[in-house]
Structure formats: structure tokens, C-alpha cells
């Protein structure tokens, strides 16, 4: 190998090292930007699940940023919760308690918002996927806490009703980066449906409180 070829080889090896070094130094921020760009390139709208669902709001952004490392810093969490609490639209009639029987049905079904479903079909809350509620339903998940005897242990008062309404409407108002969907904020459940879920938890006659 003559000198010229050697120099080229050395240069190529040096470049490769630099490239490898750069790749290793790719920051977490760059990887996130690349991930979003790749998803936008490779995902497509299907039915009601349109591509703009990949665009994050402030909550989703903040909760993604801290998902790997742990909890949101306290100050940021407080700020996020306050902003989310302000989004809650309470019922105009001031009545929070619906029909627990309708609430039980909402708690049982997980339909809604998926690409294979009609956009006009009423969605469910799928509460049992994550929570224990009524004692008779043994098929419940453990992603969220047990809500069995919710009203019985916490009380049935109007303040409690208002809190549960807001919690179902927007859980981020109380627990930053909670896993629970924002059922009212995102329009998954209607006002009446949320009232029915409130009744499932807080009507003394509901099986949750038996």
C-alpha cells in the first residue's frame, strides 16, 4: 500500500470513529425528536384514529419526558395539576349523581376511539380493566387502586361527588402523570356518563358500597 492509500485509509478510519462517537453521544432529546419524526413517517390515519393523535399536549409531553426517569419535579407537577383542574367543566345543574346501573355498564365496556370502531358509537370507561369495583365482578385489573367500598369509606357528601366528577373528568388535575385517561377532557365520556360513574362509586345503593 502506498502512502496515499494509507492516508485515505487512516482518514476513513478516523471518520468512522468520529461518526461512531457522534452516534454514541446522541442525546436523549435527539432520540425523542427522531422517534416522533419516525412515527409521523410510518404511522397513518385509520378511521377515527387520525395521525394528529401523535401530537402531544402539555401533559403528554411532560409525562413522556419524565416517564423513564421517574416522577415529575414537585413544582412542575403542582403547576400541571392546577392547569388541568381549570379545564374541568362541572355540570351546569350542579347535580353530580347519575344512575349507578348505567355506571356499572360504562365500567364494564372498553369500547371507543379505536380505529376499528364507529366514531359515533358511545364509548365506555373500562373501569374494571384497572380497578376493583363491585364485589361480584371478579375479573378486575390492578393498574389502579381498588375502589371497592369507595363511598362507604370516604363518605357520600356533595364535596366527595364533586371531587369524583372532576377526577373522572381529568385525573391529571389531582395526580400529575396518572395512568388514568382524562375521560371528560378528551370527550371519551359524556357529562351524563360521568355522572353515572360517580353514582357507581357514591350511590349508597351501588354494589360498590354493599
Amino acid at each position: 500500500m502506498n502512502n496515499h492509500k494509507l492516508r485515505i485509509a487512516a482518514l476513513a478510519a478516523g471518520t468512522a470513529l468520529v461518526v461512531a462517537g457522534c452516534a454514541a453521544l446522541t442525546s436523549s432529546h435527539d432520540a425523542e425528536r427522531d422517534a416522533v419524526a419516525l412515527m409521523k413517517k410510518d404511522f397513518h390515519s385509520r378511521g377515527q384514529a387520525t395521525l394528529d393523535r401523535l401530537d402531544q399536549d402539555e401533559v403528554q409531553k411532560a409525562c413522556t419526558r419524565y416517564a423513564e426517569t421517574g416522577k415529575l419535579p414537585e413544582g412542575e407537577a403542582q403547576h400541571l395539576q392546577q392547569a388541568q383542574l381549570a379545564t374541568v367543566k362541572y355540570p351546569a345543574d350542579g347535580d353530580y349523581l347519575g344512575d349507578w346501573k348505567a355506571g356499572e355498564k360504562i365500567a364494564q365496556t372498553g369500547k371507543g376511539k379505536q380505529w376499528n370502531e364507529k366514531p359515533t358509537a358511545k364509548a365506555g370507561g373500562n373501569c374494571y380493566a384497572c380497578h376493583q369495583l363491585a364485589k361480584h365482578e371478579l375479573s378486575y385489573g390492578t393498574i389502579g387502586p381498588s375502589l371497592y367500598h369507595f363511598g362507604r369509606t370516604r363518605g357520600y357528601g356533595v364535596d366527595m361527588q364533586k371531587y369524583v366528577y372532576a377526577k373522572v373528568y381529568n385525573p391529571q388535575a389531582f395526580t400529575a402523570c396518572s395512568s388514568m385517561p382524562r375521560f371528560g377532557y378528551h370527550g371519551i365520556l359524556t357529562e351524563q356518563q360521568i355522572k353515572d360513574v360517580v353514582a357507581l362509586l357514591l350511590d349508597p345503593k351501588s354494589p360498590v358500597n354493599q
Binding site: A35, V36, Q56, C63, T64, P181, H186, I188
Partner: peptide
């Protein structure tokens, strides 16, 4: 390595009407 890092970001990416990742 890049594919792994991007995949990891996708795994934790919260979005959509249910805020799921």
C-alpha cells in the same frame, strides 16, 4: 443502537385520546 434508542422513546411516548403509552 439508534433503533434501540428510538424504540425506547416510542415505548414511553404518551399520546392520543386516552393518554396511553
Amino acid at each position: 443502537k439508534e433503533a434501540y434508542e428510538i424504540g425506547k422513546k416510542m415505548f414511553f411516548y404518551r399520546a392520543g385520546p386516552h393518554d396511553f403509552a
